[in-house]
Amino acid sequence: MIALLLGPIGVAIVGSVVGLFYLGVDRRLVARMQARVGPPLVQPFRDVGKLMMKESIIPNGALRWLFQFSPVMCVMGSATLLLYIPLFGQPALFEGSGDAILLIYLLTVPSIALVAGGFASSSPYATVGAQREMVLMIGYEFPLSVTVVSIAWRILQVTDANAFAFSSMAQYPIWDLVGPLGLVGTLLLLVSLISVTPGELGRIPFDLAEAETELAGGLLVEYSGRNLALFYLGNAIRGFAVLSLVVALFFPYGIAAGIGVTSTVLAVIIDGAFFLVKVLLVMFVAVALVRSAMARFKINQASVFYLMIMTMVSLVGLLLIWADMML
């Protein structure tokens, strides 16, 4: 009972610390790729600390309770994600009570919190931002679902266990199951999931819901002080969760057994560190590299990119995995 109560709190605290740290690493990496020095790694912690001590203004026209409730919902929704994703090479805290399908649904909660907060703040900029976020959500949902379903379908061919559970995905890594044709298909699925990541996190080139230069902060335009800090924190946690999801789907490997570590404690530490490295690599490719190489999409370009191009890419991946199985 105590574990049931303290576990989620612990996961939320660890998730926020690690998420904020990765945010700092991301800013630093982007700065280095732009030939700048960049802020120190602890900068996101300072940002949150500063926002916490600032005045929180609630605009006159805002729907008061929703305006204040949305940031809390964003943080809680993001922290809930972490309960169902395997972290640090260990099974998820609530493994068995939820699988990848539940996670796809839960992933929408922080976005819905952002949208609700945007509409509640009664600013035209926030309203436009909220509408964009909804369009984007509809867009990336499809390639994300196709990717998860394809992997689960292939795993279903070799086991009777719940193929959507992350434990099955860790037991039968997708790369080991497929032949040469399926390898190409899996790579296509990986590409589509990596393209979904910045959209899910609202980063460049899919930051059109916040769009500082055209929408003056978009969804978050009216938020200040503590409420803004909570959104900042929620975004950091969600970033960590989505990156961990990519790792759990495609790279559920540990190295401790491979390099012959027998001590349990040492194996846990090594696998935990290896997990952080995997998340870092995924973040570098999916977030930092993309962010420094591209500019912002327009909303119609982003919709076409997700609904047409990435959906096609993931469906071709699914077909290739199917053909690989059948041939």
Partner: peptide
Amino acid sequence: LVGSPRHAD
């Protein structure tokens, strides 16, 4: 640089 005075110090 931020886009909204609400975020600014």
